[in-house]
């Protein structure tokens, strides 16, 4: 490991984050708070108007040529929408093989073998390589997107709401896959999500974002058990708990007491 912060970002409104090698930083916030924008700046898919991004000690925004090529190999992004994140006109084998093809890393046969290995690794069958995206369910497409991101053996993956559109039972499968792969390969993650339940179970560190600013950050357990900021507390409080507890009874009491309000028509 590199033993120093892998990467520091300072975006236009003074956002500062860093991800330690092999760990997961979760970026949490409501929609429109700027999570995706920050993620895209880190991946150099957008250019911030100011600030710096360092990856493995190198300035990402200044990189070009071979240095940029290396950055593109080492940093991958997985997006939310499993339906628009795969090109409908290309087979998934081609899609997964894109990275090595673009970088001219290996001959065609080797790429085909790699694609089959990756498909197996993410829980699909090697013969799926010749199919088109529309033949797969949302969960399977997210597996394909993961395989695609892994093809270049990256060190750092930005997952932007990568499991948000999946059903609960499928979401856990995909999270387990991501966590296993992280353990196997010592990957670092920037995990962007608005789902605090998921974040608690994948993150090492959490940064809470509101209106383009980081309002609080810290180790996952501290953020969840001892939040400092009112906004963090409000967010945590608002999450519906899937257990019968205090809030349910509160709710019933609250609702019964409201039955005195006058009908509206």
């Amino acid at each position: 490991m590199l033993g120093r912060p892998l990467k520091v970002v300072r975006a236009v409104d003074g956002v500062d984050i860093s991800v330690r090698p092999g760990s997961t930083l979760a970026l949490v916030g409501e929609s429109g708070s700027g999570k995706s924008t920050l993620g895209r700046c880190v991946a150099r898919l957008d250019t911030p108007t100011g600030g710096t991004v360092h990856f493995s000690g190198k300035d990402v925004l200044a990189a070009h040529g071979a240095a940029l090529g290396q950055f593109r190999r080492e940093v991958q992004t997985i997006f939310q929408d499993p339906f628009s994140s795969l090109n409908p006109r290309r087979t998934i084998g081609d899609a997964i093989g894109d990275g090595p093809t673009i970088h001219g890393l290996m001959p065609k046969d080797a790429i085909r073998d790699l694609v089959q290995q990756l498909l197996t690794r993410v829980g699909l069958r090697p013969d799926h390589a010749d199919r088109y995206p529309h033949e797969f369910s949302g969960g399977q497409r997210q597996r394909i997107a993961i395989a695609r991101a892994l093809a270049l053996a990256p060190k750092f993956i930005i997952a932007d709401e990568a499991v948000s559109s999946l059903d609960v039972s499928i979401r856990a499968q995909i999270l387990n896959l991501l966590l296993d792969i992280q353990a196997e390969r010592g990957l670092s993650f920037l995990f962007i999500s608005h789902d605090l339940g998921v974040v608690r179970h994948v993150a090492d560190d959490v940064a809470i974002m509101q209106a383009g600013k980081i309002v609080e950050r810290g180790p996952v357990d501290q953020i969840f058990t001892d939040p400092r900021e009112a906004y963090t507390k409000a967010l945590l409080h608002a999450v519906p708990r899937a257990t019968l507890g205090r809030r349910h009874r509160d709710g019933v009491v609250a609702r019964t007491s409201m039955s005195t309000t006058r009908p509206i028509s």
């Binding site: 991946a43 898919l45 894109d98 695609r148 270049l152």
Partner: peptide, 8 residues
């Protein structure tokens, strides 16, 4: 965006 981030 995926393709860009792969280096295309």
């Amino acid at each position: 965006l995926c393709a860009v981030s792969l280096g295309a």
